[in-house]
Design a protein around this nucleic acid. Structure first.
Lengths: 191, 191
DNA sequence: GGCGATAAGTTACTATGGGTAACTTATTTG
DNA sequence: CAAATAAGTTACCCATAGTAACTTATCGCC
C-alpha cells in the first residue's frame, strides 16, 4: 500500500477548509498566517493558494459554508411552526443554537478585526446607557433581562444605521420609527 | 515669521488623528498604510509611531474620540425628553444623526475588515429571510417598513448571540425571550 | 544675541507575511 | 511502461508594520 502523499483536489480542499476554520478561530483572521494554515494541513503555502487563491478567498469559502448552513437551519425551524409567533420564536432559537454549536463563527464575527475590540467597547458603552434608561422604567426587571433588552436595542440600531448608510433614502426619522414600532410596544407592556 | 517646520506635540497629534480618520475611512483600515497617514500630514512614518505607538493604537485613538462623542450626544438627547417613550425615541434619533454626519465612523464599522463584506452578505441573507416571514403576516406594510423591521430583528439577534458567547449563563431560550419580549408585541399590533 | 539642552524629525534599516514563478515528482491513463 | 497531468516544493518578490541611530529646529537661560 503506497503511503499516499498527494491527495485529490476535493479532499485537500476539505482539509484546508477545516484547518483554516480552526486557525482563524484560534488566532483571529488578521493574526492567522497562511503559513500556519498550510502547516496544520502538513503542506506548503502555495498549495493553499492554488486551491483558494488568496487569504480573502479562503475566508470567503469558510463563510460561504456557514451562510448556507445558517439559512438551512433557520428555514427548517420556521417551516416546523404554525402560528406566526412560533415561527419567529423557533427560527430565532435555531439561530442561537447554530451559533453556539459552532464557536468558530461567533469568534470570527466578534473579533475578526483589530477594530473589533474597540468597537465592542463602544457597543458596551451604549448597551449600558440603554440598560440604564430601561432600569428606571422597569424596576421589576432582572439585571439580565435589562441587559438582554439593551442588546436588542443596540444591535437593532447598529444594523439600521448601516442599512441607512447604504440607502440614503431612509431617513433618520424612519429608522427611528422602525425601531420604535417593534420595540416600544413590548417595552410599554413591561413598564 | 519663521516658517514653523516643527510643531508642538498636541498640535501634531490632532493633525495625525484627523489624517488617520480620513485615510481609514477612504481606504478601509486594513488597506490604509501608516505611510499614507504620515504623508497626508506631510511628515515621515516614525513621527506617527512616536505619537501613537502602533497602527492599532492610532485606530484606538480615533475610536476613543468617537466613543466619547457618541455617549455625549445620546445622553444629551435623552436628558432633553420627559416621558420614557420620548427619551428612547430622541436618543435613538440622536444616534442615527451622529452616525450620518460622520461618514467615517459608519465606514469604519461596516467594512473595517475583509471578513466584513462576507458577513454583510450573511446578514443580508438573514434579513431577506426575516422580511419574507414578516411580509406574510403584515400584508399592509411597505417594503421599506418590512426591511427596516427585519434589520431590527437581525441586528438584535447578532448582538444577543455575541453577548451569549461571552456569558454562557445566558441560555438560547432566554436570549430568544428577550428578543420576543420587545419585538413580538409590536409585531402583533402590526399584523 | 548667542549657547546648550531637549524634543521633533529624518534616513535607513529589519522582519513578517501575502503572493508567485519556476521547477520537481507522484499518480493516472493509454 | 512511458507520456501526460496534476500535486507539491523551493526560492523568491514586495508591501508595509515597526525601530535604531542620527540630525536639527526650537526654546529657555544667561
Amino acid at each position: 500500500m503506497p503511503t499516499r502523499t498527494r491527495l485529490p483536489r476535493a479532499e485537500r480542499e476539505r482539509q484546508i477548509l477545516d484547518a483554516a476554520l480552526a486557525v482563524f478561530a484560534e488566532r483571529g483572521f488578521q493574526n492567522a498566517s497562511m503559513e500556519a494554515v498550510a502547516e496544520r494541513v502538513g503542506v506548503t503555502k502555495p498549495v493553499v493558494y492554488t486551491h483558494f487563491g488568496s487569504k480573502e478567498g479562503l475566508l470567503l469559502a469558510c463563510l460561504a459554508q456557514a451562510r448556507a448552513e445558517l439559512l438551512e437551519v433557520t428555514t427548517a425551524a420556521a417551516a416546523g411552526a404554525e402560528r406566526p409567533e412560533e415561527t419567529l420564536r423557533q427560527s430565532t432559537l435555531a439561530f442561537f443554537r447554530y451559533v453556539e454549536n459552532r464557536p468558530a463563527w461567533s469568534l470570527l464575527c466578534a473579533e475578526s478585526t483589530v477594530a473589533g475590540e474597540a468597537l465592542e467597547g463602544i457597543r458596551a458603552q451604549q448597551t449600558d446607557f440603554v440598560a440604564g434608561l430601561l432600569a428606571a422604567w422597569a424596576p421589576g426587571a432582572s439585571a439580565q433581562q435589562l441587559t438582554g433588552w439593551a442588546h436588542v436595542v443596540v444591535g437593532a440600531c447598529e444594523r439600521l444605521a448601516i442599512w441607512r448608510a447604504g440607502d440614503p433614502a431612509v431617513t433618520a426619522e424612519q429608522a427611528t420609527d422602525y425601531l420604535m414600532d417593534l420595540v416600544w410596544t413590548g417595552l410599554a407592556a413591561a413598564c
